[in-house]
Design a protein around this nucleic acid. Sequence first.
DNA 1: CGGTAAAGTGGACATGCGTCCACGCTAGTG
DNA 2: CACTAGCGTGGACGCATGTCCACTTTACCG
Lengths: 199, 199
Amino acid sequence: MPTGVALRDVREQLFAAAERILVRDGPSALTTRAVTAEAGCANGVLHRHFADFDAFLAEFVLARVGQMDAQTAALRDSAGTGDVAENLTTALTALFGSVAVAIVALVTFRDELRARLRKDWPAGVPVLTEAAIMIASYLTAERALGRLAPDAQVDMLAPMLIGTAHLLFADRKGPPPDPTTVHKAVTAVLAGALPRPRP
Amino acid sequence: MPTGVALRDVREQLFAAAERILVRDGPSALTTRAVTAEAGCANGVLHRHFADFDAFLAEFVLARVGQMDAQTAALRDSAGTGDVAENLTTALTALFGSVAVAIVALVTFRDELRARLRKDWPAGVPVLTEAAIMIASYLTAERALGRLAPDAQVDMLAPMLIGTAHLLFADRKGPPPDPTTVHKAVTAVLAGALPRPRP
DNA sequence: CGGTAAAGTGGACATGCGTCCACGCTAGTG
DNA sequence: CACTAGCGTGGACGCATGTCCACTTTACCG
């Protein structure tokens, strides 16, 4: 009989190891041997539970990105209700938790992983880069409702989030950036530039 | 006697090969063997003329980035003169020529190269990411002169340029993006969002 | 025209990566 | 208490990359 509990334990243990490496050393340090060593097991374990390293990463991203997606999906439904700046702040807070940003950076750096995620992801569910696009679509909706300045340039949001993630992770060798600082900076920039309520 | 002319020819030939690969196949395709093969010579040539592959890349970037730097430096000196939107458009046109964007992407992807460039570059000369920062500093100066809205968020420019470069090059396998399209899109976004002349 | 120093050649090496597999160990089962 | 199916182990493989070097070719100069 397959010990289903133990199996899921190993998978979750590998995910946790990947998360630690990602947050501590950045996306480029996330290799098969690094993950298995961090998890304290042999490197062969990974390929017994996952077809591919990218399959592992894809499942890892999918497992970790759930709450972020839920919050950005909620954002889309909130168009026209509440305060625009508040809605945006909430979404960005969800997006720029430390793990979320690390995952954005991971997907930003791995071409094959991004391609696989885009292919395997069920339609309509946003992920990572697409989360930024979703925020942009929310802002577009608000603009259409007249709750934003008509000339608000929402298209720059996705590149900005990606670029920010890169600047945060590119040169980093030490401890991760402070999520609060990141969130405040990005929120300030976006909130200042994007939502301009009509007089 | 050292044949200085021929030596410089080989270097320039390698640079040209690197430029073709960069524009055609993207930054991740830029390897030692790819460059030497594109240049039509053996792979050993590269290490006879350059200490390192990163040294080669650094010299390549420095050689190719001159005119871009000259134009962004001119931009800094133009603070307070002429039209803000026009100055910005000129700078972005220089920055988003196809080679310039490709180089931005290259430096964005290569950690060690970026570190070396930052170390070897003479003080005061901007390069790549720093070019975006320079544009931002120009806008800051204009804002201080009252020629921009006081709440203009210039800090987002660098992340935006990097993110744009990444989005352009991350998934690309085929022909390079149209520089005109890139320039128009970025200019429209920045010009719409950043320079808001006081009434 | 021969000598010599530099440049070019391409095969070899080390490293790190993803991947695979033959072998033990363990834990449930009859 | 054997038995066996599945899991973990870690060494090995193939590949790509940066790097190096013994050898050949070139071309300048006395």
